[in-house]
């Protein structure tokens, strides 16, 4: 009951922030609010006993991506351009996709249901072995690093590759830094 109440409060906060982001046109405010959104969803993950995910969400979602957005914001005007285009189609897509997702959620077993299918495949073996045989209390770590070692290796390689890709785009293969804003250079030459 208490967990439910906390969840509802957090979802209320998240909805309020989402609506505020929708109606705000100042980029700085939007970025800070999306950071707050991430922080609240991290709190929700704690409430769902997914502390590992909460760590990542708080550090990456609320911290790192906010910093990156702020760095990118320096190149943009402070106000969002008001778009006068027709919003019927995006609205329709949002509503339809949202309804489909809700419909899909209804087919899921309730949270924490012990008779759910996922709890009967390999999970019992992992739970039994991790502590009794390997003496590693945190099953998440055992699954992540050992039972599913190949997946985690793939994830690490993905992060590595993504990092290399972005670095190459930003710096160029030669190490020369391309100028992001063309008129910035012309300003420079004018001063000289």
């Amino acid at each position: 009951m208490a967990a439910m109440l906390i969840d509802l409060t957090l979802v209320g906060f998240m909805l309020a922030i989402a609506v505020m982001i929708m109606f705000s046109h100042r980029l700085f405010a939007i970025i800070v609010m999306s950071g707050a959104y991430s922080l609240i969803s991290a709190a929700m993950f704690v409430n769902l006993d997914a502390v590992d995910v909460a760590f990542t969400e708080a550090a990456v979602g609320a911290g790192f991506s906010t910093v990156l957005f702020l760095a990118a914001m320096a190149w943009l005007p402070a106000e969002e351009k008001r778009d006068k285009a027709l919003v019927v189609l995006p609205l329709l897509i949002c509503v339809v996709v949202g309804a489909l997702l809700l419909w899909g959620v209804m087919a899921l077993p309730p949270l924490g249901d012990p008779s759910a299918v996922v709890h009967h495949h390999v999970a019992p073996r992992y739970l039994a072995e991790s502590y009794d045989k390997l003496h590693i209390p945190n099953v998440v770590t055992t699954v992540l690093a050992s039972y599913r070692g190949f997946d985690t290796l793939g994830e690490t390689i993905v992060i590595f590759t993504a990092g290399i890709g972005v670095l190459l785009i930003l710096k160029g293969a030669t190490g020369r830094q391309p100028s992001p804003i063309p008129h910035d250079d012309t300003e420079d030459t004018d001063e000289k």
Binding site: D52, F55, T56, F64, I136, N138, V140
Partner: peptide, 20 residues
């Protein structure tokens, strides 16, 4: 990470956050 929540991914971001 073996005993409590966490592991390489989480630790990596936290340490990077300090330097950032």
């Amino acid at each position: 990470g073996d005993y409590g929540p966490g592991g390489g991914f989480q630790a990596g971001v936290i340490i990077a956050a300090a330097f950032i």
